Amino acid sequence: MEDFLASCTSGGCGAKIAAGDLTDYLKALPTTKDPNLLVGFNTGDDAAVYQTAPDQALVNTVDFFSPMVEDPYVFGTIAATNALSDIYAMGGKPLLALNITCFPERLPKSALSDILAGGAAKIQEAGAILAGGHSIYDHEPKYGLAVTGQVDPRHLIRNDTPKTGDALILTKALGVGIILAADRAKVGDAEATEIAIASMQQLNKYAAANFGQYQVHACTDVTGFGLLAHGLEMAGDDHTLVLDTGEVPILPDALDFAKEYLTTAGGERNREQIGDRVDLDAISPALQELLFDPQTSGGLLISVAAEDAADLLAAIHVTDPVARIVGMVADREAQPIILL
């Protein structure tokens, strides 16, 4: 559709404000001492969690962005899938969603209808309810959701609570940002782009549905900050993630595009934020780019007890066959992430 994608200066999770900059902006915000707020913004977790009863807590998140694909309906499905993912990463179940919509007056109203229809389809697939929303005119189209879910506080999963000896599972392949950059530059491969789009449309619902059967200690969804920055959040101050880069799933053609320097501004921001906290010398520049690449509607990075890892992976493979065990959790060493 003319101007739908071309007019956007950035799209998907690659448009996120850099993690370090965001931390600086949040410093001026007041913190709460309400004991019912189990998870706030201070740890950079995927969603806020507020306890309402001994066995019940609300999980709240909001996520929206501008398009990264030409088809408005497909864009709606991806944006909704991405927003719902935060609930699954906390071990929760989505209950209801509110649309967030910005739309240019110059574009056909049918495009907005298609965006909303795509989002509604994914909300329905998630088993949640579309309960309303808010819309404004804007220079660029943007869409996403505010989602409320629920979780038993005793089974809440945070992003920074791995245990030494855990195995690390990544449920989706990396390279979405690079694949889309190649497509937008008209040098991409149609099949590779379709595989990337299908990955972005895959709800993390199915992988997360297996958590209750295994000892899952931490989880986060890998989105705009890339695998390494989200991995840093998981490592925290007490652990080191040891990643076997040879096992990291990669989308078809993504590594070849990275070798041709088809990278993204979001990936460069992620590299700047990592700085010297991770030694990259052991891997090629192209593979480095994939670890920095911003993932729109990416997979889950799961820290699970080593004895449960193979069984959990087998269960996840039923719906997410590219999932892999990509490393393990160790006691804190000199760096928070070690790349092999």
Results as ranks from 00 to 15, higher is better:
322 V>I: 10
329 V>L: 02
94 P>N: 11
83 A>M: 09
162 P>Q: 05
62 V>A: 09
13 C>M: 15
305 A>Y: 06
100 I>H: 07
133 G>W: 02
185 A>Q: 11
264 T>Y: 05
258 A>H: 03
294 P>F: 03
256 D>W: 08
139 H>T: 14
11 G>I: 03
165 G>L: 06
136 I>S: 14
226 G>I: 03
174 L>N: 05
287 L>G: 02
31 T>R: 12
301 L>C: 06
194 E>N: 13
39 V>N: 02
115 I>Q: 03
148 T>G: 01
259 K>V: 09
276 D>Q: 10
139 H>C: 10
232 L>R: 07
216 V>T: 08
104 P>F: 06
186 K>M: 11
57 A>Q: 02
249 P>C: 03
301 L>Q: 02
85 S>Y: 01
74 V>E: 08
61 T>I: 07
53 A>F: 06
284 S>I: 09
30 P>Y: 14
312 L>R: 03
323 A>C: 12
185 A>M: 09
150 Q>T: 11
133 G>Y: 04
79 A>P: 00
37 L>N: 10
89 A>Y: 00
257 F>C: 02
114 D>L: 13
29 L>I: 14
221 D>W: 02
60 N>D: 14
118 G>I: 03
218 A>T: 08
6 A>S: 15
38 L>I: 07
68 M>P: 02
241 L>Q: 02
276 D>S: 11
183 D>N: 13
224 G>Y: 00
286 A>N: 11
88 Y>V: 01
181 A>N: 08
143 Y>R: 03
229 A>F: 06
157 I>C: 05
98 L>M: 11
27 K>A: 12
193 T>K: 15
295 Q>N: 08
132 G>S: 13
200 M>G: 06
63 D>S: 14
289 E>W: 05
15 A>G: 15
121 A>C: 12
166 D>P: 07
275 G>M: 08
325 I>A: 02
260 E>F: 08
172 K>R: 12
120 A>M: 08
203 L>Y: 01
25 Y>N: 10
320 D>L: 06
202 Q>G: 08
304 V>T: 07
297 S>Y: 00
258 A>W: 01
42 N>C: 13
57 A>W: 00
35 P>I: 15
281 D>W: 08
270 N>Y: 00
296 T>L: 04
122 K>T: 04
296 T>M: 04
274 I>V: 15
127 G>H: 11
263 T>K: 04
337 I>N: 05
219 C>T: 06
238 D>N: 09
96 L>G: 14
97 A>F: 03
248 V>T: 06
158 R>V: 13
76 G>D: 07
103 F>Y: 09
201 Q>S: 10
231 G>P: 05
113 S>G: 14
64 F>C: 14
64 F>Y: 15
210 N>F: 04
117 A>I: 09
32 T>E: 08
228 L>K: 03
332 R>K: 14
106 R>C: 12
44 G>S: 10
151 V>R: 00
230 H>A: 10
198 A>F: 15
276 D>V: 09
96 L>C: 13
36 N>I: 14
229 A>N: 14
10 S>N: 12
117 A>W: 12
56 Q>S: 10
293 D>S: 15
27 K>Y: 14
262 L>D: 04
79 A>K: 00
8 C>Y: 11
191 E>Q: 15
15 A>S: 15
237 D>M: 09
92 G>F: 00
225 F>M: 06
84 L>N: 02
273 Q>Y: 09
320 D>M: 10
225 F>T: 01
219 C>M: 06
146 A>L: 13
144 G>N: 01
128 A>P: 04
269 R>Q: 13
